[in-house]
């Protein structure tokens, strides 16, 4: 196996494992690729305003409880800041939410419509985008993939285990 310990990312990986993740309000996952200085300074969202970022955070947490601690809002900001079509949809969605009422109440009908494939409405489209981004962000995070789902792969096995179940 090659040693990764000499490159920057590898060094940070070790740093993260021994406790640097308590430096700032970031999940351990977000440490990758960033220097200790960068980590110590909280990163401002690049597309969302502070208020909108809080709203996005609450929505993602309602879609998947634990999304915020898995760093999902920052992931959503990262993706949306690079996609003009998504920016327009997000802007419309946030404007609509403003005054639509209690979040936990207004999201459920949107979710039901999206599940039923009734996606003509702009707000359903916005919800479907939020859900896709939240699911992507959460299930590609260490919290979602490894800790929640229990992913066990990407390891070396001496042999492939025979299935012992009766099928």
């Amino acid at each position: 196996m090659p040693s990764y310990s000499t490159d920057r990312r590898g060094a940070l990986k070790i740093l993260g494992a021994i406790g640097a993740s308590c430096v700032g309000p970031v999940a351990g996952d977000e440490l990758y690729g960033r220097t200790a200085d960068e980590v110590a300074t909280p990163v401002a969202p690049s597309f969302f305003t502070k208020t909108d970022f809080e709203t996005i955070s609450r929505v993602s947490e309602l879609i998947i409880p634990g999304a915020v601690s898995a760093g999902v809002p920052s992931y959503i900001d990262w993706v949306v800041s690079r996609n003009a079509a998504q920016q327009a949809l997000m802007t419309d969605g946030l404007r609509w939410l403003d005054g639509a009422g209690e979040l936990s109440v207004v999201l459920h009908p949107l979710c039901e419509a999206a599940d039923a494939g009734r996606t003509q409405g702009r707000m359903v489209q916005w919800f479907a985008l939020m859900k896709s981004l939240t699911a992507d962000g959460y299930y590609t995070s260490r919290v979602g993939l490894v800790e929640d789902l229990g992913y066990k792969g990407n390891t070396m096995m001496a042999s492939y285990p025979e299935c012992v179940h009766e099928h």
């Binding site: 992931y75 993706v79 590609t140 993939l145």
Partner: peptide, 11 residues
């Protein structure tokens, strides 16, 4: 080869 998605901002 052995990277995981959470090692990258883009996932």
């Amino acid at each position: 080869t052995h990277a995981m998605p959470f090692e990258f901002a883009s996932r």
